[in-house]
Design a protein around this nucleic acid. Sequence first.
DNA 1: AATACGGGGGA
DNA 2: TCCCCAGTATT
Length: 345
Amino acid sequence: MTFSEIITDWYHQNKRELPWRKTTDPYRIWLSEIMLQQTRVDQGLPYYLKFEKAYPTVFDLAHAPEEEILKLWQGLGYYSRARNLHYTAKEIAFERNGQFPSTYKELLKLKGVGDYTASAIASISFNEAAPVVDGNVYRVLARFFGVDTPINSTKGIKYFKQLAGELIDRDKPAAFNQGIMEFGSIQCRPKSPKCSECPLNSSCVALRDQLVDQLPVKIKNTRLKHRYFNYLIVQNEQETLLFQRKKKDIWQHLYEFPLIESDKILEEKDIIQHPEFRKLVGKNPFELSRYNKEAVIHKLSHQHIHTTFWTVTLEDHIKGGIPKAEVKAYPVPVLIANFVREYEF
DNA sequence: AATACGGGGGA
DNA sequence: TCCCCAGTATT
């Protein structure tokens, strides 16, 4: 049996039943692939079901407000995916009459659709023999062929893509592509892969040479950055204040309380004299109180956000304020959602 | 070629 | 803790 035969056979015997595997509709395939970028199936699945229900067609998605889409996306991370999803839905719906491109080359032009996703849609929806190379595929190929070229180097990316292109079953690209990914996820998993019961174990180079736990090789960089956030819960009896994040930074287009970012933890006196605080409070009487004694550390992949929430209670009407009860309807980062849930306006 | 971009799960 | 996840866009 060839490599691709073993993979596709394994797939047909071991594949999980997942909602996007019951269709080849490019809209559903596209939606699932965007959601699963850098996201575990278990984490993405409930979001996929929500979106499928809320937006059965690309037209429904195109007509929705971005804010509504971001709200449904809340908690899934990498929010540019949601913004690009909306952008591309509008393009498909309004400029292409609802028709997705049907080739790898054309799919690649869509915003938010890169090499992997274009290949996935082309193969699954249109039977094009375009090889997918995701984290699972890198692992399977690096181990089976004993390749130690870093998977995130230019050379490695090119090499593994070519290798996958040589291995793909040109008659059944959809089964092969999904098969090798599923195989990498379940059989050739990162930690404690199931080599003793693996259909490829008789010819796996990494297993033979005891390199399974050293492959694939990945160049790791980007060290941890620390940031210090002070959120001001400006409030009176009925209202509070929320701003949308506009800058090119984390959480773009999500909402948050007025923020003072600093390079260290701030004291009450630092807050009171801060220009942003003065701008919000003006000459009005206020009561300032630190909500959490210890900073809440919100951990992202490459930064830790040390967060202090301050309540700023006013008597007056709050300019631009919104009813406290409506806070829960806005798309917010998990950091803010956690606070809102605990604080209960 | 490097960096930015979330959040959660597993060991 | 560290690593990884059905990666892409930007610098």
